[in-house]
């Protein structure tokens, strides 16, 4: 008998009742979020020490390069950017920037578009696709994220995608941090040390 058969033989039982599983999701226990002030809630959340992201606000997408440039200059970093092959980003005018399609092992900054922002936790929601590689967002020292204000949703449940899943679906709720030495918090353990959200109104 294979291990699969042996294990399943010992675990045989009634088929789960979908209604029973669904009943466990009714009225979720979660932090209250003011659905009328999602942007305020989200921005307050990402400013907490646990997320410690900075933010900027732009009114039009073509202001994005200026906002990214402003951030990098403030940080004293060169205008070097790992840019995913997303048509919305390629349409912007990046003159003055040194752009990279894939991330170097010691990349300074990577830009990505979040599909959603979650007010409950301050999470930024991403999926992989041919236009959206994953690695740069973990390699770069500065993770810069474009988020449309209209894409801010109240709760983590709103981040989920129905149906077949992308290869990777990931939530970023802060910078790479560790408390592995004496429980003391240090940012920039392996991945980004800085997270900057550019909100498009």
């Amino acid at each position: 008998m294979s291990a699969r058969e042996a294990m399943l033989a010992r675990l045989r039982g009634a088929h789960p009742d979908k209604a029973e599983a669904d009943a466990l999701l009714v009225a979720p226990d979660r932090r209250a979020v003011d659905e009328g002030a999602l942007e305020t809630e989200f921005l307050a959340r990402i400013a907490l020490p646990s997320v410690s992201a900075t933010h900027d606000i732009i009114e039009r997408l073509d202001e994005l390069p200026v906002a990214v440039g402003r951030y990098l200059e403030q940080q004293g970093e060169p205008l070097t950017l790992c840019l995913p092959p997303d048509p919305r980003l390629s349409a912007c005018d990046w003159s003055g920037f040194t752009l990279r399609e894939s991330a170097a092992p010691e990349e300074t900054a990577a830009l990505a578009i979040a599909r959603k922002g979650i007010a409950e936790t301050g999470s930024l929601i991403f999926e992989t696709s041919p236009h959206a590689p994953m690695l740069p967002n973990f390699l770069a020292l500065h993770h810069i994220v474009l988020l449309a204000a209209g894409d801010i949703a109240p709760w983590l449940e709103d981040a989920l995608l129905p149906g077949p899943q992308p290869r990777a679906h990931y939530w970023v709720t802060g910078v790479s941090g560790t408390t592995d030495i004496e429980g003391t918090y240090v940012r920039g353990a392996h991945g980004p040390r800085f997270l900057h959200v550019i909100l498009l109104r």
Partner: peptide, 10 residues
């Protein structure tokens, strides 16, 4: 409230 990185691999 949540870990910094939460990833679902499919």
């Amino acid at each position: 409230a949540l870990t910094q990185y939460t990833t679902f691999y499919a």
